[in-house]
Amino acid sequence: MRASTFFSTALFTATALAHGNITSPPARQPGPAMQAACGAAAVSAILADGTGPLENILSNGSPDCNIFLCKGAQFADNQALVQTFTAGQVVPFKAQLPIPHEGPANVSIIDTASNTVVGLPLIEFDTYADEALAVLPPNNTAFSVKMPTNLAGSCEVAGECVLQWFWFGTSAQQTYENCVDFVMA
């Protein structure tokens, strides 16, 4: 009885805290390298609520930790999740949005060394996850991006680039982000 009460409470808490994240392709996850860079509290925050906003992740203040780059998740913990894409390939995304917060969103290629956008966003939403709608548009939870054809010489080394899903809930003043590690073949 106690175990079922605990798991029911944990499930309710996780659901109540949830906001949004990418479920496919596989996004970076916390691990030992993140804990070394950002601290145990940062890892615990993501494990408790992987769909929560960046503002809920407390780092240890180390210069090795950048919560605004892949939630602080480190490539070293995610090498097995690297995807291989080709120029012009269409990449389907699936997002989980249990608590919508209207605001802009996009998917862009990010150079991880500088945390800067490479080229233009691959998809942009001026209005995304609008909580005023009875039902979210289907393209908020299932959409595709087309890999650019002008990345020759870039993003060929694992860990160099990520596809970053970025969403800012304007009313909630909360930032959501996931990163997908990839290489261009």
Rank of each mutant, 00 (worst) to 15 (best):
I22Q: 07
T86D: 14
F7H: 04
K71P: 05
S144L: 03
L133E: 14
Y176I: 10
V91N: 09
N78E: 08
V157A: 13
V180D: 07
A132I: 01
Q29L: 14
S59F: 00
G72I: 02
D64T: 07
F6H: 08
P100T: 09
N21Q: 10
T13M: 13
T149L: 03
C161Y: 01
T116M: 14
L151G: 07
A45I: 03
E160L: 02
M1Y: 12
E160Y: 01
P63R: 06
F168E: 14
Q35L: 08
F93L: 08
T175D: 12
F168H: 15
G52C: 08
F85Y: 15
G103N: 06
G169R: 00
A36W: 05
I67T: 06
F6E: 12
G50Y: 04
A3T: 11
G119T: 06
S154K: 14
P98S: 09
M1G: 11
S114H: 09
V91I: 15
Y128W: 10
S144C: 07
A37E: 06
L81N: 11
L120K: 12
A87L: 00
P100W: 09
N115R: 07
I46V: 14
S62C: 04
L58A: 14
T141Q: 06
T175H: 15
T51W: 02
K94R: 14
N66W: 03
G39I: 01
L11T: 13
A134M: 09
N150W: 08
I67R: 01
T86F: 10
G72S: 01
I67A: 03
A3H: 09
L120R: 10
I109N: 00
L120A: 15
G88N: 01
P121T: 09
T116A: 13
A36H: 05
E156R: 09
V135R: 08
T15F: 13
N56R: 10
T15K: 10
A18Q: 02
S144G: 07
I123H: 06
F12Y: 12
A36S: 13
I109G: 00
A142W: 00
A45M: 05
R2H: 10
F7D: 10
C161Q: 01
A158W: 05
P53A: 14
